[in-house]
Amino acid sequence: MMPPTKAKQWTVDEYHRMLEAGILTGTDRVELLDGQIIEMNPQLPPHAATTQRAFRYLDRLLETVAYMRMQLPVTLKPKSEPEPDIAVVRTDPNEYGDRHPTPDDIFLIIEVADSTLLGDRQQKALIYARAGIADYWILDVNTQQVYVFREPTSEGYQQETLLAANTVLTPVAFPDIAVPLNQLFLPNML
């Protein structure tokens, strides 16, 4: 009888070496989640359009206080490098040309969910909480609701709130800036 197989746990450094060596390329739609190289789901039009709309709105709203990244990596050592739909990060004079943002740089992570809601609420929420990301939102394109996760611990987020699109939400890092959630969704979907 063969012993049970164990999946290899990759570190961020090993993942970067695979990219540098060409084992993984820009055409591979993957991200490193908790030591596993995971293929990213293709985007349906509502997901893509909501991501673009939310990014454009938040970019205009936060342009004087933060830098916006859309579907680009954030490094959460030792074993995760997800590519969230939107990351609101600290302004960097080098525009992160020499590294990806790390937890100390991240103000807010937003994932847009259609078929990925369960994974975003469970696996990604735990990864972001363990990294100490203070504010994590999931825009559910199917129900037009926003899941808000706050108070991260090593066991997960202590606070999870579900809000309707007609709600106004204030980011943890920017308590003076109100975000009308309906601005993040497509008007014909509300």
Results as ranks from 00 to 15, higher is better:
P103I: 05
H100M: 05
L58Q: 01
L118F: 08
L162I: 13
P171M: 10
T116W: 05
D140Y: 04
I177V: 09
E14F: 02
V146A: 12
H47E: 14
D176F: 06
P175C: 00
L162P: 13
D114K: 08
Q52P: 00
A129E: 07
P180K: 14
A173R: 12
E39G: 08
Y96L: 09
Q144G: 10
E31T: 06
M70V: 05
R17V: 13
D104V: 11
A178K: 10
Y96I: 12
N166E: 12
T116K: 05
A21W: 14
Q183H: 14
I37R: 07
V88W: 00
A131D: 03
T75V: 13
T170I: 13
P175N: 01
E81Q: 14
I23N: 07
Y147D: 14
A48S: 14
T116Q: 07
A7G: 04
V146P: 03
P45K: 07
I133P: 02
D176T: 10
N188W: 12
V89E: 01
L118T: 07
L108T: 00
E63A: 01
P3Y: 12
A66F: 06
T11I: 11
R56V: 05
D105L: 12
P45A: 08
H16P: 03
T167L: 05
F185A: 04
P171E: 11
L117D: 13
P82M: 07
L184I: 03
A7E: 15
L72P: 00
V172E: 06
T143Y: 14
R69G: 06
F185H: 03
G35H: 04
T102M: 12
I38N: 01
Q183Y: 13
D92E: 07
E31W: 12
P45I: 15
I110S: 04
S154D: 08
Q158R: 08
L181A: 03
Y57G: 11
Y157K: 09
T161M: 11
A165E: 01
D140T: 02
V30R: 07
M1K: 05
D59A: 08
A48I: 11
V88F: 02
L139G: 00
L108Y: 00
D105T: 10
V12I: 11
A21R: 08
Q158Y: 07
N41L: 09
Y96V: 10
H16E: 15
W10N: 08
A178I: 04
T5G: 13
K6A: 10
R53L: 04
I38F: 03
S115W: 04
L163D: 09
L58V: 01
F149H: 14
Q123A: 14
P101F: 01
Q144N: 11
D98F: 12
G97Q: 14
E14A: 05
L169P: 01
I110G: 03
E81V: 06
I133N: 01
I23P: 10
T27D: 15
T25Q: 10
T161K: 15
T25I: 07
A173L: 15
N142T: 09
K79M: 03
I177Y: 07
I127R: 00
Q52R: 06
A134N: 06
Y67A: 09
D140A: 05
E160C: 15
V12S: 06
P180N: 11
T153E: 11
D120P: 00
V65M: 02
Y67T: 08
I86S: 01
L169E: 09
L44R: 14
S154G: 06
V179S: 05
M68W: 05
P82E: 12
G97L: 13
H100L: 05
L72C: 06
